[in-house]
Every structure is written in structure tokens, then in C-alpha cells.
């Protein structure tokens, strides 16, 4: 039976750890994927951060008031962890891991189909903040307000990032869209 987040959270707070396993399974793929982008492709670091975020969220769950969605709250915790890790460890970036991830990425890139490859390349044209804003709002479906609270940026700044990124992507991907519209794909 698939319970909603609220029901699962109530069960967890009542001491049912199996309910938390359901929440972890529900969000693990999305969160790990998002953090991989935030960690410049360092998959090991992204998974460690995701794990830490889930553990921190579990410990803080009794204090979760439910005025935001669980996913927004979880992402906020995860983004905070990554940002503070980046601030602390800035000079000690595991360059090997990043290079390894990049070489894996380029293999994956070569295997991707045209549209996915071009979408990926277009996303790389954006600044990191723009990419994150687009990822949260357009891929994850968070509202601008939720994305602002996750990224700890003013709402106007997030809106501006999304709008500029959207405009850039619109230009870069216009040909694909035209092909889809004209039924060539």
C-alpha cells in the first residue's frame, strides 16, 4: 500500500522505522541525481551527501511542522549540507573523482541520443545557479518560492535565474522543438 508522505512521517515519528525506508526509497533517485549535479558529477560525494541528508532529516523529523512539503524540506537539508561541505572543503576537491566522473559522463554522453545529448549540452551552457534553478523548478516541479527556500536565495533572484535560463534554452533548443512540432521526430 502506498501511503502519502504525511502518513509515513506520522508513522516514523511514532517509532516505525520501516516507514522511513519507504520515504528513502521514494526520494533516493531524485535526490542523488540532483546532488550529482550540485557536486560537479562527483557521484561518491553526492551519495554521501544524500545519505547524510536522509539521516539528518530522520533525526529532525519530530520537529517537522509540515508547513512545507517533505521533499522541499529534504532538499533544503541536502543543499545546505552540500554548500557547507563546499565551503569547508573548497581547496580539497577530489579532482580524481571529478575527472573520473567527467570521463564517465563523456562515455554516457556519447551513448545518449541526440535530444538528450543536446539538452545536456544546453544545460551546461547555463551558469550553476541558473542550472540549479531550472532543475528545481522545471525538472523537480518545485515552485519558485520553494526553490528560493532550498537555494537560500531571494525569490526575485530565483525567478530571474529561471527566466534567463529558460530564454537561453529556448534559443539553444528551438530547432528540436520545431522538429517535434513539425512531426519530424
Amino acid at each position: 500500500m502506498d501511503l502519502n508522505d504525511g502518513d509515513l512521517i506520522r508513522r516514523v515519528v511514532d517509532g516505525d522505522q520501516r516507514a522511513y525506508a519507504q520515504l528513502v526509497r521514494r526520494y533516493q533517485s531524485q535526490l542523488r541525481f540532483s546532488l550529482r549535479q550540485l557536486c560537479d558529477g562527483d557521484r561518491g560525494l553526492a551519495d554521501d551527501m544524500a545519505q547524510e541528508a536522509f539521516i539528518k532529516a530522520y533525526k529532525a523529523l519530530p520537529a517537522f511542522r509540515g508547513d512545507a512539503r517533505f521533499s522541499t524540506w529534504l532538499y533544503r537539508i541536502a543543499y545546505n549540507l552540500v554548500m557547507s561541505h563546499k565551503r569547508k572543503k573548497a581547496p580539497d576537491v577530489d579532482q580524481e573523482a571529478v575527472d573520473r566522473a567527467r570521463s564517465e559522463e563523456s562515455v554516457e554522453e556519447a551513448q545518449q541520443l541526440g535530444m538528450a545529448r543536446d539538452l545536456d549540452s544546453a544545460m551546461k551552457e547555463l551558469s550553476e545557479a541558473q542550472r540549479q534553478a531550472v532543475h528545481l523548478c522545471m525538472q523537480r516541479g518545485f515552485s519558485h518560492e520553494e526553490a528560493a527556500s532550498i537555494m537560500k536565495l531571494p525569490l526575485g533572484t530565483v525567478k530571474s535565474h529561471v527566466n534567463r535560463a529558460r530564454a537561453k534554452l529556448q534559443t539553444l533548443l528551438q530547432a528540436w522543438r520545431e522538429e517535434v512540432v513539425s512531426g519530424q521526430l
Binding site: 533517485s29 541525481f33 545536456d120 532543475h135 525538472q139 516541479g141 529556448q170 533548443l173
Partner: peptide, 12 residues
């Protein structure tokens, strides 16, 4: 765009 981004995201 939203559809494309979601469609091309791998499931981990």
C-alpha cells in the same frame, strides 16, 4: 522543456 528534462532523467 519540463517534459524533456524529466523524460531524459535516468532512474538511479
Amino acid at each position: 522543456l519540463s517534459q524533456q528534462l524529466q523524460f531524459h532523467e535516468p532512474y538511479l
